[in-house]
Computed example of a mutant assay.
Amino acid sequence: MKKSWLNKYCLIVCIALCGITSCKKSTHTPVDGVTANVYVAGYIAVDAGTNQAAYWKNGNLNILSEYGIEAKANALTVNLGNVYTAGYVIQGNLQRAMYWKNNEQIGLPNSASLPSNALAITTGGADVYVAGYLNGAVQQAVYWKNGILVSLAPDGATASVATGIYVQGSDIYVAGSVGFGSVTKPALWKNGVPTYLETDADKYTIALGVTAVGSDVYVCGSENSSDQSHIQTSIYWKNGVKQTITSNAGTSAIIANGNDVYITNNEAAGLSYWKNGTVTAVTSNGVPIKTEANGISVSGTDVYLAGKFNGSATYWKNGKATTLSVGGGVSEANAIVVVAK
């Protein structure tokens, strides 16, 4: 099973990091918003042939970018009632990393004006952290804190990308992958210092998301076999030690809810998620849902997944689908956050 995260992020990563692919016209009646607010970030395709960055709150569409200008929202967080989304906007011929606070667009600069993309976002107090990459002669993993750029690219790397970020107290954790020629290494940076995570020598392995529970740090990822089968396996690391979730599957997102850890698990058989060592299939009236989830969130005992189904941005609450209104055209949900009222 393959997931298009590298296509979404950057073709250079796909080449330089060993070609791995891992581990969006409908009507809508909101079913949430009573006991919880459901926020979903992604994009809608418009008739100008471009995509617009957008988020939905309880099914209501908020368009973030200008009509006719290519843009997507890749990530989402909510803090003190403010909605933060992160992604990119094409300005002129340059792809620029952006984030939005509510509907205010805020550029993420780099001194060389290199193409860039924002793939993950979080907050810590009043600070906003965004992870992604710059595309120069060498692709560089980076994050921004309140718009100030921090490079994560290790010496000697031929490519790197930051795909997840989590802040715990004064510690900043970033997950991503680093290429050294034909070798790919999944990485976890803590306060800018990389640690390369446990891998099998015969597998192509990537790290995608990160979270923490107390002193335990969890990273989700995927690995591909190097033989002709190209079988993908969903995996995670706990404090750097690799664990297998499911064969023929990939991950995309990880969250902590109290002491519980949840990971999307996109199996060939259909949607599922991992929680504390147990994989649960997500079905609709007992029927597997044959698509992939890009995001996951939890409220109480309810588990929400977000992705694309039949060409439309969709989220599932315990397997029940809600198609998000876009007024026609293709759309996709890349992230979801549910906040209890």
Rank of each mutant, 00 (worst) to 15 (best):
A207R: 00
K203Q: 11
S177R: 03
K320Q: 15
I44L: 02
I63C: 05
W100T: 07
Q52T: 03
L94D: 08
V338I: 14
D227E: 12
V337P: 01
I231W: 03
N191V: 07
D202F: 08
T246P: 00
A71L: 12
T184M: 13
N259R: 09
T85N: 08
V213M: 11
V219R: 00
Q52F: 01
V130I: 06
V89M: 06
A335W: 05
E267W: 01
G107E: 10
A120K: 02
A45G: 13
V303I: 14
K8S: 10
D302H: 15
I296F: 13
Y9K: 08
Q105Y: 06
T158F: 10
T77G: 06
A112T: 07
A137H: 06
A157Y: 14
T291S: 13
Y43S: 11
K101G: 08
N7R: 13
S26L: 02
S22W: 02
T291Q: 09
A53G: 13
T21Y: 10
V210I: 09
W144T: 04
L188E: 00
Y129W: 06
H230D: 14
N285F: 14
A137T: 14
K238V: 11
Y315K: 06
V282C: 09
Y262N: 03
W189Y: 00
T280E: 02
I90T: 06
A162G: 10
N74F: 10
N117V: 02
I106Y: 02
K203Y: 12
V142Y: 01
L114K: 04
T314E: 02
I172N: 01
V13Y: 05
N224C: 12
A131G: 07
N146D: 15
K57L: 06
N7Q: 12
V128L: 01
I90N: 03
S222R: 01
S160E: 05
G214H: 10
P30Y: 04
L305A: 07
V241C: 07
E104I: 14
Y204R: 08
V78N: 08
P109K: 00
K242I: 09
A71K: 08
S4V: 08
L152F: 10
Q105C: 13
T278E: 09
N62L: 09
A54R: 00
Y173P: 04
K8I: 07
W144A: 03
G156P: 12
N259Y: 09
G295W: 02
E332Y: 14
I90V: 15
G92Y: 03
E198Q: 15
N82Y: 13
A120C: 09
G169T: 03
I20A: 15
G136C: 05
S325D: 12
G327Y: 01
V40M: 11
I245N: 06
A335Q: 12
L64G: 01
V298I: 15
A313F: 02
S225E: 04
S226R: 12
T264D: 07
G81T: 13
V282E: 03
K190S: 01
I20W: 04
G33R: 03
I254W: 01
L271C: 09
K308W: 07
Q140P: 05
S116T: 02
V298M: 14
G319Y: 07
N265W: 08
V38R: 05
K24W: 12
T314R: 00
K275R: 14
H230E: 14
V34N: 15
I44H: 03
